[in-house]
C-alpha cells in the first residue's frame, strides 16, 4: 500500500486508483512482451509509462483496453472490470490515431459518439478545444500528423472521460506540434482528468507527468513520482524499528519534497543537500536508530537515460 503523505503529513489518505494492474502477462509465442506487471495509477495524476520502443508499453495498454487478450493476470478500471460502462469513462488512443480517412473530422467524431452512445455530442466544442474547428469538414486523410493527433485527443475527450489514455502522442511531430500536444495535455490534466501517457522520451515524461512507471523488456523497473525518479538532490531510503515514530520526526524536517512508504521503508526525495551520515546523526540524537539506510543520487536518471536512449534492438 502506498501512503502519500507529501501534501498532508498528518493524515494518511488512501488515494483512489483509476487503474490497477496485477501480474499482467502477455506472451507472443516464445516472446514475453509483458512480464508480471503490477501497476496502480492514482486518480488525478499525469502518469507516464516510460520505456524504450518494444518494451511492452503498447501491449500493456492494449490489454487494459481490452483489444489484446492477456496470457494471465488481471486489471480493473475504477475497481471494476472493463465493460461498456467503464469504457465510457475512458478516452483512449492506441498507437496512431485511427480514423476513417475518407470521412471528415466531424463525421468521424459522429461515429465515436454513436459507439459511445453520447446523446448530444458537443463536437464543435471538442474540436475547438484542440484548435481544429476550422478544418472540421475536411477529410481526415488531408490532415497533417499533428492535426491527426489532436483529432485523436478530441475524440478521446468527446465523452468527458475521467481518464485520458495516450500512446506516444508526440511521436513523429515537429517541435511546434510537440509543444501544442504538451500544452493540451497539461490543460486537460488541470481539468482534473487523469492522464496516462506512454512515451519513450524521458524528457517528455519529466515535463508533463507527475508519476511514472519505467518498463523495459515487459518488466517494471520503477514506479513512483517523477521527483523520485529524477531524484531531486537524491533519494534516501530509510527505515527504523518504529516507522511511525520515524515518520513523525521526519515530518518536522524540511529538507525533502516527498515521503513515501513502500514495503516498510520510507523513501525520501531530497530537495536540499544532506548526506546520509548527517541524517543518521540527526535521527540518533532523537533516539531513532535506523535499521536500513540507502542513499542514491540521481543515479536512476542516468540509468533511464541510458536505457531509453538505447536503439531498438
Amino acid at each position: 500500500m502506498n501512503l502519500e503523505i507529501a501534501n498532508e503529513p498528518k493524515i494518511l489518505t488512501k488515494v483512489e486508483k483509476v487503474l490497477q494492474i496485477q501480474s499482467l502477462r502477455k506472451e507472443f509465442g516464445k516472446i514475453i512482451a509483458v512480464d508480471s506487471l503490477n501497476l496502480e495509477i492514482p486518480k488525478g495524476s499525469v502518469y507516464g509509462i516510460l520505456g524504450p520502443n518494444g518494451s511492452g508499453k503498447t501491449t500493456t495498454l492494449g490489454m487494459v483496453l481490452g483489444v489484446i487478450s492477456q496470457t494471465s493476470g488481471t486489471y480493473s478500471w475504477f475497481g471494476e472490470p472493463l465493460n461498456f460502462k467503464t469504457k465510457k469513462r475512458i478516452g483512449a488512443i492506441l498507437e496512431t490515431p485511427n480514423f476513417y480517412p475518407y470521412l471528415s473530422a466531424r463525421k468521424n467524431l459522429e461515429i465515436v459518439a454513436k459507439i459511445k452512445e453520447i446523446k448530444n455530442p458537443d463536437i464543435e466544442a471538442v474540436l475547438e478545444s484542440v484548435d481544429l474547428l476550422k478544418r472540421a469538414d475536411s477529410k481526415f486523410k488531408t490532415y497533417s500528423l499533428g492535426m491527426k493527433q489532436r483529432l485523436a485527443i478530441a475524440s478521446a475527450l468527446l465523452n468527458d472521460p475521467e481518464v485520458l489514455l495516450l500512446d506516444e502522442p508526440t511521436n513523429g511531430l515537429d517541435p511546434n506540434g510537440i509543444a501544442q500536444i504538451r500544452d493540451l495535455v497539461r490543460g486537460i490534466a488541470k481539468r482534473g482528468i487523469t492522464v496516462i501517457i506512454a512515451s519513450h522520451l524521458l524528457d517528455e515524461v519529466e515535463k508533463i507527468c507527475t508519476d511514472v512507471a519505467v518498463i523495459r523488456f515487459g518488466k517494471l523497473l520503477f514506479a513512483g513520482t517523477v521527483d523520485e525518479m529524477t531524484g531531486g538532490e537524491g533519494v534516501l531510503e530509510i527505515s527504523a524499528d518504529d516507522n511511525l515514530k520515524l515518520k513523525a520526526e521526519l515530518d518536522t524536517w524540511t529538507c525533502f519534497s516527498s515521503i513515501k512508504e513502500l514495503n516498510g521503508k520510507l523513501s525520501l526525495v531530497l530537495s536540499e543537500t544532506i548526506t546520509a551520515s548527517e541524517v543518521n546523526e540527526k535521527l540518533a540524537k532523537k533516539s531513532i536508530y535506523l535499521n536500513h539506510l540507502n542513499f542514491r543520487k540521481n543515479s536512476l536518471e542516468e540509468q533511464f537515460l541510458e536505457l531509453t536512449n538505447k536503439p531498438k534492438s
Binding site: 483489444v67 496512431t96 485511427n98
Partner: peptide
C-alpha cells in the same frame, strides 16, 4: 485503418 481496434476501444 485500424478502426476496428478503435471501435472496440471506444466501447463496441
Amino acid at each position: 485503418f485500424k478502426t476496428y481496434r478503435q471501435n472496440l476501444i471506444d466501447g463496441l
